[in-house]
Design a protein around this nucleic acid. Structure first.
Lengths: 101, 101
DNA sequence: CTGTCAAATTGAAGAGCATCAATATGTCTA
DNA sequence: TAGACATATTGATGCTCTTCAATTTGACAG
């Protein structure tokens, strides 16, 4: 299993939308079904699915099917990795260190 | 002088373009004139000015006039701050610590 | 002042993206 | 298998963003 470094453009693009950041906040530290996310935001179900697809493609969320529902949760390790990569690329004179709590 | 926390949407949007990331790489750790940036990339001068404007509005570059030229340089502290803010918001179970080298 | 050089601004064209309604796919239950 | 429910996909629309050519603004030299 290889560790693939996060592409800074893919990472930044995935974060560069308000609705996506709201979705990310919602499913941070917990698993939410698509329906629960739709209920929490004022956007349509296809829109939520669309954004989840983008986050999934960037590797920023994990998903798990449970019956008819699909649950999503933020992949915090990937987020942290992306932040570190940005800092390595664009703030090399600063030390950004990540450590699990 | 107040410390304004980086808005994660503004920050991510500013980073979410390949040309801007190239510009950021170029003027990381050094001061470059607009002309030098134009020469290093295959885009027009107005395009470079446009992107510099976006980076400046987000506080990610500093600028300094010297005669007819204007020099730009990455503000690495702001970059690091933005990365930390993203990690706080979206990877709270990880510890992302920044320290000047 | 006038001309020249560097960068910013304006305006327009086109690409990309977010959003939704409608539909399709997949899963469970009866 | 048929119907109901949850999510994904499709197709269309409108908005945002990138880009460039043309022009303007600003700064220096003569």
């Amino acid at each position: 299993m290889s560790i693939k470094t996060m592409n800074p453009i893919t990472f930044a693009k995935a974060l560069a939308d308000e609705t996506r950041q709201k979705i990310m906040s919602l499913c941070c530290c917990k698993w939410l079904s698509v329906g629960e996310i739709v209920d929490a935001l004022n956007v349509s179900q296809p829109t939520v699915s669309h954004h989840l697809g983008i986050l999934r493609a960037a590797g920023l969320v994990d998903s798990r099917r449970e019956g008819k529902q699909i649950f999503y949760s933020l992949n915090q390790a990937k987020i942290a990795s992306g932040c570190c990569q940005l800092a390595i690329d664009f703030a090399p004179e600063h030390n950004l260190v990540v450590s699990p709590k």
